[in-house]
Design a protein around this nucleic acid. Structure first.
Lengths: 210, 210
DNA sequence: GACTGTGAATAAGTTCACAGCT
DNA sequence: AGCTGTGAACTTATTCACAGTC
């Protein structure tokens, strides 16, 4: 039941989760891969393959129970227990992400946001989120058992901050800086989101006919 | 020279551009695919393959001229001429992106930002960027010849806004909403960035050893 | 009859390996 | 000798097609 799940599959799970939440508000108790296909845009075969990685939990001739499916996917992603996140860099993007995230994800909690600007430290970004000094990074990350870091610092600070976080126990990063992070002993998971890449690559398609 | 370039290659071009800009400030005039590999993290074969899509412009035994390469890549992406972008939704994320982008990309200019909140309309987000009413969307997009749209609106508004933009001439979207956009006649390019997917899928990796 | 689960076929992208210039 | 350009091998992901279950 736990043979190396491809990253592409993992990244589809939150989409399934979103649809399943919707379906539950609509009181839909059973759903077929074909219907899920309509709602997600993924092919029905792909959906069945994805679910099969976690063992078969559909019923042939019937479909999947939305409730069971949702709970299973939550558990696989580890969203059944709360996850603490720290955002490093309380600039435009960091602040926006803190607020954005708090609105949407109960399971993923912004536990702290850090900056090195004295004017920002102590500022309240959102309910329950106040900017801490980056000097307290390791202490707070350890204390609050933070496992996930979001990097929205200037590029030159990224590598150092990331290393400090890893030694404090962070296992995974959302890296919004254009820096290719490298680690010696530890091997945290790094998901890069490079907004320059998004904007500039999109330019290519504005010149094409479609 | 122009046989269907894979999307993955297009998305690597901005990374090459960033490195090439750095190299030029360091006065490096010639660069090998091996050196580019070190700086980008992509394999040297991959880099050569990518460049080969646009015709061979390296010199065997020598390498690539940074200046020629940079100009070629800029041209392929269409960054040699300015590109107008509109952001729809002046919330946390939209505002952050407007400011973020203005700092970094001269070639990609935020030409307008729209919202439907009367309190926001007329507000200055950054130098030269003031929030316009969404009622003026089509007029302004047409007038300023905007080709790229960034959607940071609430999900329920996304489809309508996108359609209005397409009829005004927008060719490509950066879609930060979780909505699967669909179009009838036109076929704009849509790049989805789903922050919920990023956060939730990352949770999976915080539970793994690596 | 409806829908899942899965091997087999295909497609897309990456790495290998080496011939070909300079 | 050094480095590009590229066909061939390989790897990864998706789609096809159908047997199996309810």
């Amino acid at each position: 039941m736990d043979d190396k799940i491809p990253g592409v599959t993992i990244r589809r799970l939150p989409v399934y989760l979103r649809v399943l939440r919707q379906l539950q508000t609509e009181n839909v108790e059973i759903i077929s891969s074909a219907k899920l296909s309509q709602r997600t845009g993924f092919s029905s075969e792909q959906i069945r393959k994805d679910f099969a990685y976690f063992g078969a939990f559909g019923t042939r001739g019937v479909g999947y129970q939305t409730d069971v499916l949702r709970k299973t996917l939550m558990k696989i992603l580890g969203l059944d227990k709360g996850i603490g996140v720290a955002i490093i860099g309380a600039g435009n993007l960091g602040t926006a992400l803190a607020r954005y995230n708090i609105e949407r994800h109960e399971e993923i909690e912004i536990s702290a946001i850090f900056d090195n600007d004295p004017d920002k430290i102590g500022t309240k970004i959102a309910d329950d989120v106040t900017v801490s000094s980056i000097d307290d990074l390791e202490a707070i990350v350890g204390e609050k058992d933070i496992k996930m870091g979001v990097l929205t610092v200037p590029p030159e600070a990224a590598q150092d901050v990331a290393e400090a976080m890893v030694s404090a126990g962070v296992k995974a990063f959302l890296n919004f800086t254009p820096v290719k992070l490298e680690f010696e002993d530890a091997n945290p998971y790094v998901q890069n989101i490079d907004l320059s890449v998004e904007f500039q690559s999109l330019a290519y398609y504005t010149n094409l006919d479609g």
